[in-house]
Write a protein that binds this DNA or RNA. Structure first.
Lengths: 201, 201
DNA sequence: ACAGTTAGTGAGCGATCGCTCATTAACAAC
DNA sequence: GTTGTTAATGAGCGATCGCTCACTAACTGT
């Protein structure tokens, strides 16, 4: 029952919903990394995606739903990366030196690190989000083990290698936190130094 | 020039500004830990502190100023804790097993962890905050070394022990991040498991 | 007793937030 | 063409945000 007096801008070309969903998620990831979950508004995301707020809300139930989708994606990416490394490793175990070399060569951009930390913070506060993340990880983990098993590895070895990779990842992210208040050292250097100090066998 | 018609509630008892400042900071820490920097409003903090918004803004320039004060406090607390451990350690080096035992006995409440992560996220995004943290840490670090030197330790040993402690802290916080998406394991257990996997010498 | 200082109040400001929904038009099927 | 479906729009809603400031009253010094 609203007044229809004013002219309305021309709608953009039609696109499959899946395409628009992907656009919005990409835009949201950019915004969230730059400014955080709470600070970026839905309008910001829509504008970055080149889409109206209305369309955004036709494809996503809420701002929270977008956040959850992004978190799910990140978990998926981590597991996928773990698969690549494990698949390329010998049965004897992860080549730690090699992983460290990869970590050292990785350019850690602070923006995606910010996203990781904010997700961690949110997970600390929201039990529902925490179990959502845990469930997602659990199912993806099972798939990973299954795939590796089909690839000829015993489930036990696969699990052990994955656990080891996770520990390396944990130490790396811990080193990142330290490096933030430790001036004059790049993130990569901080990671190297951390492992060096630990004298990991 | 505003209308003064309505009755106004009685002001509370007068208190020294420093006291009120402390009250507000404590309240803010509680709120921020529960809901995050962006989500908690200035009104929330004022109410939690039992103080009006007006007074809050007489004692703090902005909401950001409160956040910075809390971050500074946290850095100070970390350095102070490091001092305690180092001062109680033999000259030969940090007793890692002991520190691990302390870590294992520490009840990690998710709320203060959330604060830590949010600070890290903010530091990733805001270069000004980052250098603020770095400067604060640097001066406190110098004081710590000076104190330990006066206590009879060589500056070199003191520095080495501090660095080692920082690495342990880094690994611990990394383990925390992992444990968030790793169901069925407490934070303390995750830390133990991480160090165990690393087989730290 | 009175003036001066300052801790303390809270309605209300402009801006912005997440979200809705009446409306439009691009496209497919015929 | 005509019609039915649905991707797409954006002004505007109620709520809330950080923050201001005209004002009050509890103290202090004399």
């Amino acid at each position: 029952m609203r007044a229809p007096e004013k002219e309305r801008a021309k709608p953009r070309r039609r696109e499959a919903p899946a395409v628009r969903r992907a656009q919005i998620l990409t835009a949201a990831r950019t915004c969230f990394a730059q400014a955080g979950f709470k600070t970026t508004s839905v309008d910001d995301i829509a504008e970055e995606a080149g889409v109206s707020v209305g369309l955004l809300y036709r494809l996503f139930a809420s701002k929270t739903a977008i956040i959850e989708a992004i978190i799910a994606d990140q978990i998926e990416a981590q597991i996928a990366q773990a698969y690549e490394i494990i698949a390329a490793s010998p049965n004897t175990g992860i080549d730690r030196a090699k992983v460290l070399r990869i970590l050292g060569e990785t350019s850690f951009d602070l923006q995606s690190l910010a996203l990781t930390f904010e997700i961690a913070a949110e997970a600390c506060r929201d039990p529902a989000l925490r179990s959502f993340m845990q469930n997602r990880r659990a199912t993806l983990y099972d798939q990973l083990i299954a795939r590796l098993t089909r690839g000829g590895r015993s489930a036990k070895t696969a699990a052990r290698m994955f656990a080891e990779l996770e520990v390396i990842g944990a130490v790396a992210s811990g080193a990142v936190i330290q490096s933030l208040s430790n001036p004059g050292r790049s993130v990569s250097e901080a990671i190297r130094a951390t492992f060096l100090t630990l004298r990991v066998k």
